[in-house]
Amino acid sequence: MKKQVVTPLFIGIGLLVGIIFSLQFRAKPIGSGSFPLERLEIQKELLTEYSVEQQELKQRIEEADEKLQEARALIERQTSPQTLNELDRLRAAAGFTAVEGSGIRVKLSDNPGVSRRGFSSVNENFVQASDVRDLVNSLFLKDARAVSINGNRVMPLTSIQPVADNLLVGNFFEIAPFVIEAVGDPDALEEAVETIRSRKIRVFADVVDSLKLEPVESRRTLKFLKLHE
């Protein structure tokens, strides 16, 4: 009688274990999305159009910026040392100076089991904007003196947003893999990287003896910010 009860119980447990194993280990990552094809095409066309437009704009901004720096350098030569010191001090405080020193370089790339072809739904195997945002937060928490993503310096008020499985860092469109560089104490910065090791993406971190992160100088017009009187 006891055997009649125990045997089906074991079979039942065996089946349950099998099902759980299947769910846990055999589930395939979502490789691509299920958006209707027509919409995908329109989205891809728009993405390409905006990317091309952005490349052109970036080049024109760089050229204009270079001329502006030259004009400013001319003016600064005629300015008193005190005023120049004040200018340099404020630039440093606002984060508009290059930062050099040792640090780390982290490369975030997708899990090799997935592909970014087409547009995907949210997929834990892709590097998400939130992964990059979390890493940047952890690096600042560990006293990073400066951080950049794919060569773009990021400040605490630089937004990191998803755009069609890629990133918009500030106003700049960036595609995976994402290389994040940070200047600061390498040991502390390596601890910061641990915060995203549990994700299903690939994370490579290297200590770098000498890094130079160029400044960002936003030309954004400040429409609302005033000195408080």
């Binding site: 952005q54 949210v122 947003q161 755009v163």
Partner: peptide
């Protein structure tokens, strides 16, 4: 945290970013 409500909303963000870059270019000039 990350699911887009609408992929077109994200693309709109990209469009706005380019618009801001154009404004940056004007400001620089």
């Amino acid at each position: 945290r990350t699911e887009p409500e609408n992929i077109f909303t994200e693309l709109r963000v990209f469009q706005v970013a380019n618009k801001q870059l154009r404004a940056n270019l004007d400001v620089t000039k």
